[in-house]
């Protein structure tokens, strides 16, 4: 029984480490995609968020301010993406790819410029990271410590997921953003400012991707390196498609990916199964889930199509 409880604790702990970055980025991506702007620049936005988060942590010594700065850095890239895609009707996939290059390249460039040609930032002091809840309340390694003594943000992100769901389905803005992604011409005809809605959504998506990146450098580890994000932005996009472009679907998809990381960790301790097979778990589960339970992913009708205002 004790073994089961311990392992359950570890599983939840691993899930709470792996899920938040994906979920932040994924929820943001929902806004962008549902408003009709494809954003594959999530990876670049996460990387710049991770970098600026770490740097702000170094200079301010306050985890929350640093976390917010990471988000704002992502939002800046979001603004660029929005201008290029919305105002100038550029191809959204190409613009997103450029954002990926820009984000990762700029982070490395600035890092080298600021820190004496080094590609990693100096390590953060534990006090300037995001705070943990229940620090020191539970014995290290106990169930309580593994489940509850985690970074507060790891729980906050689920509150955010609920807020996103609320915004999507219970507010006027949510109705507008969903409509804009399906039929922008119709929206314009009834007086919704398509550009304004899309700008808001794309910048929000950059902000949240930045938060996801900052979580990695301010909670998971304590410094920025060029390879701390690698691939997570794309997994977040996969989670959004998997979750049928809805906040709640995305949450479940991100949790599934996170849970698989937990299973992977526990399985890799026994060394009886080939580690290569274990590494396949998240992807195999995704494919099976896609085939059996999800069915067709319904992308918004106007997703990826530039909208030109009627003169």
């Amino acid at each position: 029984m004790d073994v089961i409880i311990t392992n359950l604790g570890l599983l939840i702990n691993a899930t709470l480490i792996a899920t938040p970055p994906l979920l932040f980025a994924g929820l943001g991506s929902c806004f962008s995609e549902r408003s009709g702007v494809v954003n594959i620049g999530i990876e670049g936005m996460m990387t710049i968020g991770a970098f600026i988060g770490a740097v702000a942590g170094l200079y301010t010594g306050n985890g929350w301010i640093a976390f917010l700065c990471g988000g704002l850095a992502g939002a800046v890239l979001g603004i660029i993406h929005a201008i290029v895609c919305i105002s100038f009707h550029a191809d959204q996939t190409i613009a997103g790819t450029a954002i990926n290059f820009l984000g990762t390249g700029l982070a490395l460039f600035l890092c080298k410029a600021l820190f004496d040609n080094s590609s990693d930032t100096p390590a953060l002091d534990p006090a300037s990271k995001l705070p943990k809840i229940f620090e020191g309340v539970f014995k290290t390694g106990s169930f309580g410590s593994n489940v509850l003594n985690v970074y507060g943000v790891a729980y906050l992100v689920f509150v955010l997921a609920f807020v996103c769901w609320f915004v999507f389905y219970k507010t006027k803005f949510g109705a507008h953003l969903r409509a804009v992604g399906e039929h922008p011409e119709a929206c314009e005809s009834i007086g919704i400012d398509v550009y304004k809605v899309r700008y808001t959504c794309v910048i929000l998506s950059g902000f949240m991707a930045g938060l996801g990146g900052a979580f990695v450098t301010l909670a998971t580890i304590n410094q920025f390196r060029p390879n701390v994000i690698v691939g997570q932005g794309f997994i977040a996009i996969a989670a959004v498609i998997f979750g049928k472009f809805t906040p709640h679907g995305t949450t479940w998809a991100c949790l599934l990916f996170g849970l698989c990381t937990g299973i992977k960790t526990l399985a890799s301790m026994s060394n009886t199964v080939s580690p290569n097979l274990i590494s396949m778990i998240p992807y195999v589960v995704t494919i099976i889930a896609l085939i059996l339970f999800v069915g067709r992913a319904n992308a918004p009708a106007a997703n990826g199509k530039p909208f030109v205002k009627a003169r």
Partner: peptide
């Protein structure tokens, strides 16, 4: 993330 979970498992 996996590295952290692996270490947490060992610490537990």
């Amino acid at each position: 993330a996996t590295g952290k979970s692996n270490a947490n498992t060992m610490i537990t």
